Amino acid sequence: MKLAVQEHLLPGRSLQEKFVFAQEAGFDAIELRGRGDFHFAGRLTELKRALADGVVMPTVCVDMPHFIGDFDPARRTDAIQQLRSQLTVIAELGGLGVVTPASWGQFSRHLPPFEPPRGPAEDRAVLGEALAVLGEHAQRNGVLIMLEPLNRYENHLVNTLAEAVAYCSMESVKVAGDTYHMNIEEDDPCRSLAEAAPYLAHMQVSESNRNQPGSGHLDWAAQLATLDAIGYDGYLALECRLRGEPEIVLPQTAAFIRKFL
């Protein structure tokens, strides 16, 4: 397993400067962020220059105001178009693929008004249709679209690894786990990782409190041992808030995680 860190957590004015810091801190790669309005495609020159300079950028995590499970058809279509573009770009960089949730902040069945304006069957149809389009595009480009389950308060569509696996009907559609969301949703995180193993392509890591690993109560030894046991050899991408200055916290975090690898 290798360590990555999301680009916005790193000090530095350029990806090259950020990568130098990341390596010195103990990380192997940078996870990019994909904003809307085709902003990510607009960075292609910058990204290709960074790639030529040796910056390792295997994945991009979507960072948009709406997602493929949106209730509004126009916003849903836009999200699909944005992700198609991001898949094309990450393929040009020789990366693994794009990480996206079904939605974020759109609705929760655990907060008022409790009942969404769309039923479960339509939810599944909408999300399945979007992932079919994205899966085909990903397959043509030799990359993956990776569905990330979020916790029940941030997303009502896909909350667990098993629910995400149910949408993996194509080789190019896989699952991205996130230890923070798993802490809320999975009865047994280790068992869930083992059961999702054939579909697990990426992992994002943060603590029970959404801060950096080592600042909460997650059983890192158990979860990382499980990933090792199932043969997971992908990235552990740091996606969290930092409690402290990055110059101090990031090297400490990398050292903390590596104790269990």
Score class of each variant (00 low, 15 high):
residue 205 V to L: 01
residue 182 M to H: 05
residue 184 I to A: 05
residue 202 H to T: 04
residue 136 E to D: 15
residue 141 N to P: 00
residue 187 D to L: 00
residue 149 P to M: 02
residue 144 L to W: 08
residue 182 M to L: 09
residue 173 V to L: 04
residue 171 E to S: 02
residue 179 T to P: 06
residue 136 E to H: 05
residue 191 R to T: 15
residue 204 Q to C: 03
residue 136 E to F: 01
residue 151 N to P: 09
residue 151 N to R: 07
residue 201 A to M: 02
residue 150 L to Q: 14
residue 190 C to E: 12
residue 153 Y to I: 05
residue 172 S to V: 12
residue 205 V to Q: 06
residue 176 A to G: 03
residue 169 S to G: 09
residue 191 R to W: 10
residue 155 N to A: 07
residue 153 Y to Q: 01
residue 143 V to D: 04
residue 165 V to R: 04
residue 174 K to M: 07
residue 136 E to W: 00
residue 138 A to T: 10
residue 179 T to W: 00
residue 197 A to Y: 11
residue 162 A to T: 14
residue 164 A to P: 09
residue 138 A to R: 04
residue 158 V to M: 05
residue 196 A to W: 01
residue 162 A to H: 11
residue 158 V to T: 14
residue 140 R to T: 12
residue 160 T to P: 04
residue 206 S to T: 13
residue 205 V to G: 08
residue 187 D to A: 07
residue 154 E to K: 00
residue 155 N to R: 00
residue 199 Y to N: 09
residue 187 D to N: 11
residue 179 T to V: 13
residue 197 A to E: 11
residue 162 A to P: 13
residue 139 Q to P: 03
residue 146 M to R: 06
residue 204 Q to M: 04
residue 149 P to H: 06
residue 164 A to W: 02
residue 146 M to Y: 10
residue 145 I to T: 11
residue 159 N to G: 12
residue 170 M to S: 14
residue 140 R to N: 11
residue 151 N to S: 08
residue 178 D to M: 08
residue 174 K to V: 05
residue 165 V to T: 13
residue 152 R to Q: 15
residue 190 C to M: 02
residue 182 M to D: 08
residue 158 V to E: 14
residue 143 V to S: 03
residue 145 I to A: 05
residue 137 H to Q: 12
residue 146 M to W: 10
residue 161 L to I: 14
residue 193 L to V: 15
residue 193 L to W: 13
residue 193 L to R: 10
residue 174 K to R: 13
residue 157 L to R: 11
residue 166 A to G: 07
residue 138 A to G: 09
residue 154 E to G: 04
residue 183 N to Y: 09
residue 205 V to R: 11
residue 157 L to K: 10
residue 163 E to G: 13
residue 150 L to P: 06
residue 202 H to G: 03
residue 197 A to V: 02
residue 156 H to Y: 15
residue 188 D to I: 02
residue 141 N to I: 04
residue 158 V to Q: 08
residue 180 Y to N: 01
residue 181 H to Y: 13
residue 201 A to W: 02
residue 182 M to W: 01
residue 164 A to F: 03
residue 147 L to G: 12
residue 151 N to T: 06
residue 190 C to G: 15
residue 191 R to Y: 11
residue 140 R to L: 00
residue 148 E to P: 15
residue 159 N to H: 11
residue 205 V to P: 01
residue 178 D to N: 14
residue 169 S to P: 04
residue 148 E to G: 13
residue 205 V to S: 08
residue 159 N to L: 04
residue 141 N to E: 14
residue 193 L to T: 15
residue 159 N to S: 13
residue 203 M to W: 03
residue 206 S to R: 01
residue 159 N to K: 05
residue 164 A to K: 03
residue 165 V to K: 01
residue 177 G to D: 11
residue 140 R to A: 11
residue 156 H to P: 07
residue 203 M to F: 02
residue 162 A to L: 01
residue 145 I to C: 02
residue 151 N to L: 03
residue 203 M to R: 03
